[in-house]
Amino acid sequence: MRIHFTEEAWNSLDKTTDFYLFELDIPAFIVDKIIRELLKKVQLLVENPYLGQKEPFLSHLGKNHRRIFYMNIKIIYRIEEDELYITDFFDSRQNPSKMKS
Rank of each mutant, 00 (worst) to 15 (best):
T16S: 09
R93Q: 15
I75K: 00
L84P: 03
V46I: 02
E81Q: 07
N48D: 10
P56A: 02
K74Y: 06
L61R: 12
P49M: 04
V46F: 00
V46L: 00
I26Q: 10
F57Q: 10
I34K: 13
D91H: 09
L84I: 04
I75C: 00
G62I: 06
T17E: 11
Y70A: 03
T17N: 13
E80G: 02
K40S: 07
S12R: 10
K63R: 14
F89E: 01
I34L: 11
L58T: 04
Q94C: 13
F57C: 07
I79R: 02
G52L: 04
I86G: 00
L24M: 11
N64A: 11
Y85C: 04
F57N: 12
P27G: 05
L61Q: 14
D25M: 12
I26C: 15
L13G: 00
K74N: 05
I86Y: 03
L13R: 02
I34A: 15
R93L: 10
D32I: 09
S101M: 09
I76C: 10
K41V: 11
I35G: 09
A28Q: 13
K15I: 11
L45I: 01
N72L: 08
D91V: 09
I68C: 04
D88R: 01
H4P: 07
H65I: 05
D32K: 11
L45P: 04
K15A: 10
I35W: 08
G62Y: 07
L38E: 09
Y20H: 12
Y70E: 04
E7A: 14
P49K: 01
F5W: 15
K100R: 12
N64S: 14
M71F: 12
S92G: 13
M1N: 12
T17D: 09
L44F: 07
S97R: 03
S59T: 08
Q43V: 03
D18F: 14
K41I: 08
K63D: 07
I73K: 01
F90H: 08
N95S: 14
D82R: 02
N72I: 08
R66V: 00
D25R: 09
S12Q: 08
F5R: 05
H60V: 10
F90I: 07
V42Y: 03
G62V: 03
F22L: 13
A9E: 11
I68Q: 06
P56E: 04
D91Y: 14
P96N: 06
E7Y: 05
V46G: 04
V31W: 06
F19P: 12
I3R: 02
Y85W: 06
R2N: 15
A28L: 06
I73V: 10
K63N: 11
E47G: 15
